[in-house]
Structures are given as C-alpha cells and as structure tokens.
Design a protein around this nucleic acid. Sequence first.
DNA 1: CGCTCGACTGTTATAATATAACATCAATGC
DNA 2: GCATTGATGTTATATTATAACAGTCGAGCG
Lengths: 162, 162
Amino acid sequence: MAHPKPGFPEPEHNHGVCVADALAAAAERCAARGARLTDIRREVLEVVWSSHRPIGAYDILADLGRDGRRLAPPTVYRALDFLLEHGLVHRVASRNAFFGCPSPGHATAVELLICTECGSAVEVQEQRVSAAVAGAATRHDFEVLPQTIEILGRCAACRAAA
Amino acid sequence: MAHPKPGFPEPEHNHGVCVADALAAAAERCAARGARLTDIRREVLEVVWSSHRPIGAYDILADLGRDGRRLAPPTVYRALDFLLEHGLVHRVASRNAFFGCPSPGHATAVELLICTECGSAVEVQEQRVSAAVAGAATRHDFEVLPQTIEILGRCAACRAAA
DNA sequence: CGCTCGACTGTTATAATATAACATCAATGC
DNA sequence: GCATTGATGTTATATTATAACAGTCGAGCG
C-alpha cells in the first residue's frame, strides 16, 4: 500500500500505517534481494520512520538506547549503511540526517522537499525535474547518477503559521 | 595554484584568470553591499578558488597555515560564513565542502554538477531545472528557497578514463 | 558431531567537521 | 580620550562519522 496522499502528510494522519507500510516494503525488498533485515536494522528503520522528518544518526542512537541498551555509533551507522545500500533510506546531506524511502527501488533520481522551518520532508518523483536535470547534464557532458536531490523551502503549514 | 586534477568544465585553462575574476567580482560585490572583504576573507576565497573542486574547511585551514601561521577553525568558518552570506561561495553539503560561486547574486536556485570520481564541480543555471523544481513545489504547496541544488554524476574526463 | 567460514554485532578509540564562549584588537564616530 | 562596533585570536568542546579488532552465531560440510 502506498501513501494515501501525495505531498506533506496531514498532521492527523494515521502514522502507524506509514511505519507498517515501510517495514512491510522493506521486508519484501530484502527477501527479494536475499538481504537480511536483522533486528537492529529493522529497529533503526522503524526509528527513521518514527516521523516524517530526517533524523540524525545520534538521535537514532539515543532513541534506541531509551530502554537502557548501550549501543555504539558503529552499530547504528552499519544499519544505516545497509538500509542505504538497499534503497530503504535516503541520506539527507544538507542536514546530516536520514529519511525513510517510501518507495524503495528507484531507477532514477528522486527529489526530497525539505522544510527548513519544521524540518519535515516529503519524497516526490517529478518527471520534469529528472528530465530537466538530464538535459542539463547532457549539455555539460555529464552522466547523472541515481540520487536524492534535496530541495529546501517552506511547507504550507509553516507558511500559514507565519 | 595548479590543481592536481583539472576540473571537468575546462580540462586545460588559464586558471589564474578564474581566480582573478572571482576576486574582482567579490571585491565589487562587497563594495556595493558595504561589506568588508578583509585579508583573511579574501585569502579564504582565494584558497576556495585554487581549484574547481569543492574544498573542506580544514583543507583551507591547512592551506592557509602552510606559511607557518597557526589559524584556528573558527577563523576559517567565520570567513566562510561571510562569503556564504554574500553569495561568494556555495556550501556543498554532500561533501562537507565549499565552492566558489562564479557569478554572485543569483535570485534563484543554481545547480552544481559534481563529479563523484574526481571531485570537480561546475556551477550551471538551467532555466528548465528551476522551472521544473518550481512546478513540483507548486504541486506540493511548497515554497522553494534560493539554494544550491547538488547533482552528482561523472564528468566526461572520468568517463573517458574508465 | 566438530569444524570452519562468513555475516553480523560489540567495543574501544579516534578522525573529521563545526561551533560556543570569551578575550583581544583595531577602526570609527562622538 | 573613549565608547562602540566589527573583526580576529584563543581555548575548549560539540557533533558527525569511521577504523580496527574482538566476539558471536548460524549455515554448510567433512
């Protein structure tokens, strides 16, 4: 099941569905690729999906340690490396953070709209952006790689609040 | 001033001209805005322009310290903050680095094509990319801010070498 | 069964990037 | 002179990320 609506999630949406969908899609994708979605990896993915905002590795670490466990940074970074490798999360360079990918398995680039005020983000796939980027690249003899293109701005809610 | 690997935009070019142009444009822009392009700020900008590759703050620091001076990180970061504020350099989040802006004063977003193999970059301004991004933003009720959009790929030289 | 092999995780230490906080200095205007 | 302001110096530390090696655990195999 995909997200009910495109765009920024409604404040009152049933977020449990988002998490459940993401975990199910991850399990399916790992099974298909012969990759092991271990406990830690699934837990990290779940924390990444605990909101619609990119989350830092050390915040993930803190969240996982709330039950008294003492995990070390490499544990989280290794899980994140795995999730990145299998397209289950995006690295958000502009924020040194990580964001759950709602539709793993892109062949091409995807765009991430990131609100600089509230920090929430949404993944979009815009044909025209990809096409324009590809065109620009061609003109400069440049080969574009699949990637996450980060676009910063203000979401509707933050604009309304201002 | 020779850079180890020539950038993909201009394999062999008179790089002194790039630096001189950049410094002249910076001086002009600072004068117009009543901002002080001090010695350190100019030196940092010069180091940023020493190649066509984004350079890290600590590499700038090392470069400035080659004559025996012992500068501290805040000195470089403050100069970079100034240069960012006045649009003279771009922050390249995907590489934790900084890149000289050849045409300060953009009203809109610019794109940076960054080669993941040799690290070279080139700034481009593609109307169709901006338009497509603006369209995508509108569809998601999102207000795009002026920014540097980073696009990763492989330059022609690196493709040829492979 | 006992073994080895490889993938995963634990642990310690440290690298790399960035900023906070406060001291000093220099130019300007009064 | 002297206060104000902006720039830089200095020290310490925060934040993000990785290196290196040890231990664990299960699958496959003799």
